[in-house]
Amino acid sequence: MSATTAPAAASRKPEFSIGRFLLEGRAFFALIAIIAVFSFLSPNYFTLSNFLIMSSQVAIYGILSIGMLLVILNGGIDLSVGSILALCGVVAGAMMQGVELDWAGVILYPPVWAVVILTIAVGAGVGALNGVLISIFKVPPFVATLGVMYVARGVALLMTNGLTYNNLRGSAELGNTGFNWLGFNRIAGIPISVIVLATVAVLAGLMLSRSAFGRWLYASGGNERAAELSGVPTRRVKITVYTISGALAAIAGLVLSSQLTSAGPTAGTTYELTAIAAVVIGGAALTGGRGTVRGTMLGAFVIGFLSAGLVIIGVSSYWQTVFTGAVIVLAVLMNSIQYGRGARKG
């Protein structure tokens, strides 16, 4: 015990060092660097309209990565979000095309608000299934969500026979117009999708930093046994984070199919990996207990702005993949430098 005390006492001293400052704000500085480099390389990059377009693309990943952050803070992982996104998009598409009730002989066209609520409920339901598998049946998160990833994708393909629902604008006589509002409209010049992202981020941030649930989540991710013995309802926390992750995947699915005014069963493939990357770049520890919404948002914007910038300056999409991968590896390297010394303690 004695040896671990001394070095910790030394590192606790609030000595200012440039290295430490750069390390802790790395995602922020990376974003600044990306913006600066691409602004220098292309005159079209540093414009308001480009930033808004890029941000509305980031919104999809951003919403997913907030859900992913909650799951990772709990010490888990959610591989199913890309599939839930597609499934929910298809569910929304099917409802927009009309739900035929054979026994009543009618076709129901639910209004858009009902479509939105039902779709989010489907996403939350699939997420809750993940949570129940993991917390009650003790299936490891990686395996449980991998399975649900395949099942959800399969159900989406079955529902559409592999085809895509097109033209989801609805029609005035059926009273279900407005589906494209999410994807196309703007409030005060800002795309709705960005506003949705900002709202979700602020709510999640408040939840993590100021609510009892947030504290439970950090505690059960840091040491589940200690949290449980302190009276934290760890099982409920676990089910809740997967449910929220599923619901946010549904919201992302709605935004995406609204932007495209179409819903396909293959949408969102590998998006879960991008979401994980954003969380990791944002400084969260995959072992749980460490991470912030602010970091994750920076991570999502780093990935989004980097790939958009590469497109704008005309770099091949193969190179984009290489760059994104390099950024992820670099981020994990930085994380282990930041947490490496402290993690061995105790």
Partner: peptide
């Protein structure tokens, strides 16, 4: 079983009595 290593001294101390300083939705 006792400590959450990723949390501060204060957060560990208050962990078992969060409800006592939660007002409505927020702590």
């Amino acid at each position: 079983d006792g400590l959450v290593q990723t949390m501060t001294v204060g957060e560990n101390l208050s962990l078992a009595s969060i409800s006592s300083f939660t007002r409505g939705l927020f702590t």
